[in-house]
Amino acid sequence: TSPHGSPSSPSAGLPPFFMKGSIIQLADGELKRVEDLRTEDFVQSAEVSGELKIDSSTVESIECSRTPNAVIIQFSVGENKAQVCVEVLVEYPFFVFGQGWSSCCPDRTTQLLALSCAKLSVGDVCISLTFKSLK
């Protein structure tokens, strides 16, 4: 048994791969730590993958959610500027083009994941994915 009585990981509620030091495999097989990823890594991986496409998703609004520690982010996705809402924890990191990891509450992200983050703001352009075959 744990002396601290804390069975959950510090990243409870977030996927484990956002934890600083997590090993990420790019589409060409190269391994990088999550904190070392750059915009080009995502762009090149999508090109290599064949079936995935990178979309530019602009943050249109960030609103409080009824869920504790959560926010509702509205994105304008891709060339068609489709409006998509997602509800995420305030510490959930998104990858902003040319800037890197960003979350609504960077202090909390850093505290929980040790991942350095910028503040996600309205107007930021995040990397998102779609399937190429969708027409």
């Binding site: 791969f17 997590s22 090993i23 495999q25 996705v77 997602v86 990858f95 994915l129």
Partner: peptide, 19 residues
């Protein structure tokens, strides 16, 4: 040590194709 695929890190934000 677990290795995670790059596409796990960024969200799928495909809109629902209703039209």
């Amino acid at each position: 040590v677990p290795v995670f695929p790059w596409h796990s890190l960024v969200p799928f934000l495909a809109p629902t194709q209703s039209d």
